[in-house]
Amino acid sequence: MSLAKSYTAGDATWLQSFVGLFFKPTRLQIAALCVRPGETENEILLVSTRDTGRLILPKGWPEPHQQAYETASTEAYEEAGVLGQADTRPMGTFRSYKGLGNGSKIRTKVMVFKLQFEKQLKTFPEIGQRQCHWVPFSKGIELADEYALKRFLRRHRMEIA
């Protein structure tokens, strides 16, 4: 009898858990790249993380009852009070890490949707938890605190600037 055939259903669960110790799947997050006209070039929105204050795009976990582009709009509203129209197709993706409350990090794949700014509300769900920074696109590349986000912005300069 082969080794694979000797396992029962319960053993298969154990085996999957064992493999999970060595391989962790990438988890998907959805981000909004909020863009508005600026004086010399388009501006983008960076928000601070709640724990370390790093500057990132508004992003979050997919919502089961929403399309991904709708989730991007929701994140822009919740984290920065930004309302606007998100493209229905993503601009692209980049790899990142999500810090957890216990100090550990998990690898994520961030799907980015461009959101054309319409207005920013004075009150929103995460007001006081994050700082919002509208910056010229070229300055945003410098200020972003994730190398992969910087690379993503450089790669998509022609779609934004």
Rank of each mutant, 00 (worst) to 15 (best):
A32K: 03
S2L: 14
E118Y: 05
C34F: 03
C132E: 10
M91Q: 14
L28D: 12
L149P: 01
D51M: 11
A4K: 11
T74Q: 12
I106N: 07
G140L: 07
R107P: 07
R107W: 06
Y97I: 07
G103P: 06
N42P: 04
C132D: 08
F117S: 01
L3I: 11
P64F: 07
G10F: 02
Y97W: 06
L33K: 00
D11A: 05
T123P: 01
S48E: 02
G81E: 07
R50C: 08
L57N: 01
R27L: 12
M111P: 02
M111V: 15
F117D: 01
L83P: 00
T71Y: 02
R50K: 15
S138V: 11
Y97F: 11
V82C: 13
A76I: 10
V112H: 00
Q120R: 04
A80I: 03
E39G: 11
K122M: 07
A31G: 08
K98S: 13
I30W: 01
G60K: 04
K105E: 09
R154A: 11
F117H: 02
A9E: 10
T40V: 08
R151H: 13
L33A: 04
S48Q: 03
Q16Y: 12
M91C: 10
A76P: 05
I56K: 15
G140C: 08
I44F: 06
V47E: 02
A68N: 05
T52E: 12
A72I: 12
V47M: 09
K119N: 13
D51G: 03
E70S: 05
G101C: 05
R151D: 11
S104H: 15
L143I: 10
S17I: 09
S104M: 13
F124N: 03
S96L: 01
R107F: 06
K109E: 15
F23E: 15
E75W: 13
E118A: 05
L153E: 00
A4G: 03
Y7P: 01
D51P: 03
R155F: 12
S48Y: 02
T40W: 08
P62R: 01
K59Y: 08
K119L: 13
P136W: 09
A32E: 03
Q120Y: 02
L3K: 10
Q29S: 13
W61D: 13
T13R: 12
E126L: 14
P37T: 12
T49Y: 04
G101Q: 14
L115A: 05
W14A: 14
K109Y: 07
W14N: 14
K119C: 10
Q85P: 02
I127F: 11
Q85I: 15
Q67T: 11
T13Q: 10
T49M: 04
